[in-house]
Computed example of a mutant assay.
Amino acid sequence: MTMHAVSAVSGELHDTEVPAPEPQAHDLLVRVEAVSVNPVDVKTLRAAHPDPRILGFDAAGTVVAVGPEVSRFTVGDAVYYCGDYTRPGANADLHAVDERLVGHKPASLSFAEAAAMPLTTLTAAEALFDHLGAGPSTTGTLLVVGASGGVGSILVQLARRLTGLRVIGTASRPESREWVAGLGAHEVVDHRDLGATVRAVAPDGVDAIISAYTDVPVLADLLRPWGHLVAIDGSHHDVGPLKPGSQTFHWEYVFARPAHRMPDMARQGDLLEQVSGELDAGRLRGTATRFIPGLTASGLREAYEAVGSGRMLGKLVVHR
């Protein structure tokens, strides 16, 4: 049995026919209804690997088959998930994914709206709850650098909804500042002059930073002693400026749990179930802002170009 997929080859996207995946023991086989494009997709495409690869690391769809050891889902379930970077992606008619990474789709969201959520939600949740250990009783000040982007758009909401942190978000354009304020940030500052604008609202600095664009010397200066910096960008960083303040540097990489088959990889599915409930209760809101029809090479090219521009507000989704 073959299926349509969009393959990345040497920096280009192509419509192809490939064998349909066979679900492994813990796998769901999902008919993909929508995918969201993230910077990781764009960076992987730009790496121009000569071997064909199916990208797509954010998806929503319907379960059409299950592996023999699946216990949480049945055929017909509507699901959403981030998936596993070490396996073929979801830019295809059918996609196999480990059930431990999957959540039931929020009933209040369409497939396209739901596809915008998993990767950024898991990145934000792991940064906030697993790396920083934040919870309902956590106080202090959190700086979110890149608050109008995909991760920032859900991170601001999670921090406001599920912690006691004061949230400062960065944005520069009028529309992005309005977006971040609408998500619940206590303060919105201009990241083009980050040091001065943060100090204007937090003269003594901040307790923690989660950053999509990590300039360690600037952020170390804004971070209080014994503070924590969580980086979600893919650059190499000199963490030396953090030493004088005994500040801690964390890498957040959403694919670490599935790639290393960590014993707690089911936490990703659990987090998506929790967020699904919060979305259905109206306590969180979706972050999709743009939709492109057509799960084809043409539709995905348009999406990759938009995300690669670095000016996206919220998330972009490609759907059937």
Rank of each mutant, 00 (worst) to 15 (best):
F57N: 07
H319C: 03
V6D: 03
D204T: 05
R199K: 09
P241I: 03
L162E: 08
T163I: 10
A60S: 15
G135Q: 09
Q268W: 02
S36A: 15
N91L: 12
L109P: 05
S71A: 10
V317E: 04
A196E: 14
S309T: 14
V317G: 14
G89I: 10
D233G: 07
F249P: 01
G269K: 03
T62H: 02
V66H: 10
T44H: 12
G152L: 07
W179D: 09
L29F: 09
A297H: 13
I232D: 01
R192C: 00
V145R: 04
T197H: 12
K43M: 09
G67M: 05
L13V: 07
D193H: 12
A5K: 04
E187R: 14
D215M: 01
P293S: 15
K43Y: 03
R31C: 02
V70Y: 07
L55H: 07
L128A: 15
L101N: 13
P244Q: 14
K243I: 03
I209T: 06
V156S: 02
A200C: 04
V188Y: 13
T170I: 09
G149L: 12
V75W: 07
A107T: 13
L128D: 15
L143V: 09
G103H: 11
R160E: 08
E278C: 00
T120G: 13
V201H: 08
G135L: 09
S172D: 05
A306L: 10
T16N: 05
E69D: 12
T123R: 14
H26S: 05
A288F: 02
L229Q: 04
P174F: 08
L271E: 06
S148G: 15
T86A: 15
R192A: 06
V307D: 09
S211Y: 01
G152Y: 07
A256M: 11
A200K: 11
D193A: 12
R31V: 00
H26P: 00
G314C: 08
D238W: 01
A202S: 15
R285I: 08
T289N: 13
V254L: 04
G133R: 06
I210F: 05
V189M: 14
E187H: 15
L162N: 01
S172Q: 08
L158F: 06
P241Q: 09
D270C: 03
G282H: 09
C82W: 00
V144K: 04
G150Y: 01
V239R: 01
S71P: 00
V216S: 01
D93P: 04
A208H: 10
T296P: 06
A281Y: 03
I292M: 10
D264R: 11
L313F: 04
P241Y: 08
A112P: 02
A107P: 00
G294R: 06
A8C: 09
V198W: 06
A231C: 12
D190T: 13
A5H: 03
H236Y: 12
A147D: 02
R290P: 00
G314R: 12
S108N: 08
D233V: 02
T248R: 12
G61L: 06
D238Y: 02
V30A: 10
M262L: 14
V64H: 14
A125K: 03
V167R: 07
A288I: 02
L119G: 10
Y213S: 08
A107N: 11
P258F: 03
P241T: 07
V188S: 13
P174Q: 10
A92C: 06
G133S: 05
H49F: 05
V188W: 13
D98C: 14
V230E: 06
Q157R: 08
A59E: 07
E178F: 00
M262K: 13
V318C: 14
P88Q: 09
